[in-house]
Design a binder for these strands. Structure first.
Lengths: 337, 337
DNA sequence: TTGCTGCGAGAAAACGTTTTCTCACTCAGC
DNA sequence: GCTGAGTGAGAAAACGTTTTCTCGCAGCAA
């Protein structure tokens, strides 16, 4: 039982008593239900105002069987990509009167399943960004999470909308750009091995290499962060490549910074591309050539899908692949002769 | 009444029936209450597992009178400062088993009060970042929001912990640094007029000027974003100053970018400082001299305060002011002779 | 006047838990 | 063998809403 504090929060019962009507009538008035006489409605509204009545949303949720809240599970709130997704979801959901509960797994992949389940119990649905979760785990988890929307997974799961960017195509476009500028020795500064979006990039590059036998491609292990890019500078230089395809903008920026420290000219000696087009990409020096993923919009779309499922729409669009767009800026140029 | 779907979610009642006990016993087992025989407990646990029982947290919240959720109201999820606060709060709260509901007012100041109230109704407490809310409004709102923790407000509100950074001192330290390097003509690239943290900076600079009569200080209207800094470049150059104190790192970076486009050398011709030390500040070219505010930690501290209030601690620390630390990097240098 | 219709509002059930109350039962002590 | 304490578990109330059900009353046709 809740503690009976001396002054409990005022509830619908208090308003009812004050107005001399029943709970039911108060509820009807508060919900704009019309079948209530004007004078009584007014009296109720007056009473509610006098008492500063605020409906308790937990009670409401229990009765209605919905919380008007959705959970967003992200692997890392520090990563601009996930911040953007969160922002997109949050704003779109807010327009429809929904709120967002955040669950940040802090890159602890094993936590994701638990977090997602926990979030689902509190919310009407879950939007899941778990790039590194194993496919099998995801399949096991999905039914319990429904309504569920997936972001950046290539695994199709029954009845589950999935939005993703075509990283494979994007990285090919970037590679093609470098090759068109005369680069023949490229290096891929990779992301985390188990990440779905990294696998897509790798696969895209494999395709690219099949079509460009004259080009040489190496791979250097990297990561997702500034630090990863910064630390990889020696390996990158050792590769002898003239063009670097970094896993994402963060990594590219870390690398750019390290190259600057070494006095390596970009793009004079080395061309560098990022991926994502985070807001900062246009403010680096040199500005960063990258493949833009409209990530905030992707968050908004995730909400659209969720909203459709919540409304019980038939035929919700399940698979959606967004095409990244190559943005040419200052960090790429012709290969040094 | 909630729709009676053919297969309703399984609840405590189903587990009770399956195990041949009462709801009460199931509840006791699930909550680790000891006064239940081992064999019965085992039977209940088995039944729960068989049925994949997941306790409904809305029902739980109603009975317990708490939601284990707190709301965080931020003016702009796009701003790295608020992202960092959110991250700090979220991670700290998660460690204590609490979740975070986000309410992004999208810079619409008039929405903040409503959003905060709405968040409070769904949550056990609210952490409010509303730098531009009028003091009077805040005072009116505060009682309804309690438990409440304020961030970056200078207004003391009864019984309400408030964490803030000493922007006034920080900007003075930055100004002192520039003056020490020989700058005599400074310009403050201001933030939004009504923002509390901007007022603190202005006040700090007034103090500084009193102590340094030989220094000339102008003020140029700016904003909080890249774009604001970028657009202000003409006004900055027209001021004839040799040292720029930008409102924050974002503005400074926008300005840096615009200066680079104009071919103005930083710090050769112009020194620039930021404020906040966002992660990107160390990756700009040149790297940004700024006053570091440990903002994620500030978010964590906000949770500590909230947690203390929630636990019913007497004497919670109310006012906490964090001292920014000047970080010297490459964007400032001696005044041009 | 009687009976039917329609409407407005109160009574009560329902949502899914937790917790207090109560009671049946066991066991020890006399 | 009877009483008292102690223990374990079911019954029921409580949390604060929404919604269905029901009923009283007014109006109208027969």
């Amino acid at each position: 039982m809740a503690k009976r504090a001396p002054s409990r929060r005022i509830g619908i019962a208090d308003v009812a008593k004050q107005a001399g009507v029943s709970h039911a009538t108060v509820s009807r008035v508060m919900n704009g239900n019309f079948s209530v006489a004007a004078d009584i409605a007014e009296r109720v509204r007056q009473a509610a105002a006098d008492l500063k009545y605020q409906p308790n949303s937990v009670g409401r949720s229990l009765a209605l069987g919905k919380t008007d809240t959705i959970g967003v599970v992200v692997p890392d709130l520090e990563n601009p990509t996930f911040q953007a997704i969160l922002r997109g979801v949050s704003r779109a959901a807010a327009r429809d009167g929904y709120r967002v509960l955040i669950a940040d797994s802090s890159e602890v992949s094993s936590e994701e399943a638990i977090l997602a389940g926990e979030a689902r119990r509190r919310c009407d649905g879950v939007i899941l960004c778990a790039p590194r979760m194993a496919d099998a785990d995801l399949r096991d988890l999905a039914p319990a999470l429904h309504p569920l929307v997936l972001i950046n997974r290539s695994t199709p799961v029954e009845d589950t909308p999935c939005l993703s960017a075509d990283y494979g195509q994007g990285i090919q476009d970037l590679a093609a750009h470098l090759v068109a500028r005369g680069h023949r020795r490229l290096v891929f500064l990779a992301g985390p091995e188990p990440s779905a979006s990294n696998r897509l990039r790798v696969r895209g590059l494999e395709l690219f290499m099949e079509q460009h036998p004259a080009v040489e491609l190496q791979t250097v292990p990297g990561g997702v962060s500034f630090a990863a890019g910064h630390e990889a500078v020696d390996a990158i230089l050792a590769s002898g490549a003239t063009g670097v395809l970094a896993f994402n903008d963060l990594v590219a920026m870390g690398l750019l910074s390290a190259l600057h420290e070494r006095g390596i000219s970009v793009p004079g000696q080395l061309s560098v591309t990022g991926f994502d087009d985070i807001p900062f990409a246009r403010y680096t020096t040199p500005t960063l050539t990258t493949a833009a993923v409209p990530i905030t919009e992707l968050g908004e779309m995730a909400w659209q899908r969720m909203s459709a499922v919540l409304r019980g729409d038939e035929d919700v669009v399940l698979g959606t692949v967004i095409q990244p767009e190559v943005i040419l800026r200052g960090s790429t140029g012709p290969a040094p002769s």
